[in-house]
Design a protein around this nucleic acid. Structure first.
Lengths: 235, 235, 235, 235
DNA sequence: GATGAATGAGTGTTCATTCAT
DNA sequence: TATGAATGAACACTCATTCAT
């Protein structure tokens, strides 16, 4: 559609255009089904069918079910850390604002999307697929931890955060996000009552909690540092 | 056949006693394996073998693998909440101490035991068993929330906690515990590195976080309310 | 049927009796099909069907197609070297008679039976199944060479054979037998004309040839040593 | 499209010339691969790739993999027997020398070349292609036997060979050559040990064997007939 | 009741063959 | 003519479930 620089090459016939779209269509179908039914319970036939192709065609683009899954992870999570790292690097607000931003952006781009189902899947089935587990650790967990580590380190370096032992606080920071994803894709799918957890509020509460522990307090106890004094506990 | 020494027992011969014990042995074996490997990856042969019976015998007691799974979940969600509610009612320390106590007792009695595997099971495979999911909600989630609600309400009533909207804080309080169970039964089994989460420290950190947000502060910043000033954030 | 020593244990029900017969039936069906169609072209379903069981049952007794094949080789060839070695050890005629005996016995027990088809199969498909090739080399080729080596060594030790370098003559001795098996299972199956190779005559000719080269001649050229002076070239 | 320097050639442009060469290139590639891996294990993609065309193009020239196989065999069984028959006819040495010459020439022109792969192909896969088998018999086996028959007959007629029944000795003469081809293309590729068969020595040994049986002996045992008294059995 | 041999539908994956371009 | 994307029928192997004993 968008007339990019390739206007000189007319991009070819219907078939060719379909070919270029295939991986994307398959990836999308795979994401849907993996999230909906889990890795083991998802049949490659189904993925292919949902993408509108035959089973054989799927294996034309992805050499195995595991590789298909890895590609899904790459497209939806792992491949985006580079961009995120740059955003963190170029952020020019306070460390507290940055951390808050990370939480909210994460929720918008991952947590609230289908992609969050992948994490649930890893927690549920990762043990049975060691290679996938290793891949996920390498491509998602470690980069994610590294990203958070930098955010906190930045706060410490600038004197905005207390000099906490980072590795120790890492899980405290990440746990709520992970929990949210797990909750959303298990309990929440079966408990549509109002009793459920409201993600945005939960995140706000977590941000407050974490910043409470991290931010260097001025002498007056309840002063500025808490960026959104009314957000979490109130409302 | 051979009436061994146990013939004095009024329940009859060894075989008969074993017969009565069969379902329990099967459920225990199934629990272990479902927790360890998940529903799909657990083979009924294994369950039967671990219970010391043949595969055919298993199907004598449970009409299908699914029903076995349901039975496992049902049996292990005993109604311990009544007892716990009484303990909360009769506790005579401060609300902060009570909350801390709840966390620690919970870890000792549930989180660190095999029972936590049930939660993992529910989160991992519950999606495919709506009936189980509803059961779990009724028997575990609601009572658990009610218990926490009372603890917080008590703090508010006594002026020890700030008058937060309880439903909103509920998940913030419970999330870490659930997270801990899931982590323990998935990631932790695959990431033996030093990078791992130390449960006790994690709990301490969570307690601190929660109390920070809940406890009414006296004028002097670092006074009594924070129960373990060195535990969590300190090195 | 045959009332062996097991008459004390009635050998059980029909089902049990069938169970004991299963491996043998499967092995026989497998031998037939492997020889007839080759390893790759033989479908496990077919083997099972010919043995009168379902595909699943086959995998109850043999963990994979390759293992099934190995079992066939063991039963029909590899497992019989021990017996053959003993026969060689206890033979009390001349070395020439022993060698002749080996040829003839081999033809009767292997060469003329279905088992010889296995060798053809190995030559045809061995390259594509390295594990099978290695197995065959270890379990058949090496023991077979060892057996022949002993026969020749015995002749040399007793002064009946010339002191030839054994390894060098080994192939000359074995080649005709291998050739015969290959021929029988390829050309011969398609050329039923009278023009075909007559195995017994061919073997006689080979024996003569080999002995001509091996046997120590007395001074008179055409004396006793050649055990069947009329067999090969005559008739 | 671009008419390169070859436009002077009357056969047309480069493309056209390549077009005409296509079937040949495909057959050559197919020969290599069929010999190396067998019929079933050779994938048509590979054949096409090695011939430098796409898979679709292959099916433009050969309607199926089976037909490709047949074409490979047909093309490579050139009628060289006419030429050889003349050479035999015009040879003017002794019959023994002629026979020896035949062996050595055969090894040089066929046995040691790629052509021997055809025989391997026929023996390995011929069973499944009766039509090919008949073709091979007619075009190769019968002419080959005829050639050998003449050589022996010549020896008998001249009083150099004993009056053996020719048909009976035919296979004894041919077997080693066939065996050598099969061995070279199957075992030899998998048994790189020193234990392997040395073709030249093997041929020498065979020549000796055959001549031992055929040549009319003069009174002195170790006279001329045995052409290479040290080659085969000697160290 | 207890067994475990037998089953067969279902899985991921391959590859000769087709056909729109 | 040539392409290579797409197909779908196989295949080896698994495992919950059945049932004769």
């Amino acid at each position: 559609m968008s007339p990019t620089s390739s206007s000189t090459a007319p991009t070819g016939t219907k078939r060719e255009r379909r070919k270029e779209a295939r991986p994307g269509e398959l990836l999308e179908a795979a994401l849907d089904l993996f999230v909906e039914k889990g890795f083991a319970a998802t049949r490659v036939d189904e993925v292919a069918a949902r993408a509108g192709v035959s089973k054989g065609t799927l294996f034309l683009y992805f050499p195995s079910k595991e590789e298909l899954f890895k590609a899904v992870v790459r497209q939806n999570i792992a491949g985006r850390f580079v961009e995120w790292a740059q955003e963190v690097e170029t952020f020019d607000g306070s460390a507290a604002e940055l951390l808050r931003d990370c939480y909210l952006e994460w929720w918008e781009r991952v947590g609230s999307t289908k992609a969050s189902g992948i994490t649930k899947l890893i927690f549920s089935e990762g043990q049975n697929f060691p290679e996938i587990m290793a891949f996920y650790k390498q491509e998602v967990i470690l980069p994610g931890q590294e990203l958070v580590r930098r955010v906190i380190q930045r706060g410490i370096d600038r004197g905005e955060f207390r000099p906490v032992p980072i590795d120790c606080i890492l899980h405290v920071v990440l746990a709520p996000m992970i929990f949210l994803m797990l909750w959303k894709h298990s309990m929440a799918t079966c408990i549509p009552d109002g009793l459920d957890l409201a993600p945005e509020q939960f995140i706000d509460a977590q941000i407050d909690n974490v910043l409470h522990g991290l931010v260097v307090r001025s002498d007056t106890p309840s002063s500025a540092p808490s960026p959104s004094p009314t957000a979490a506990r109130g409302t």
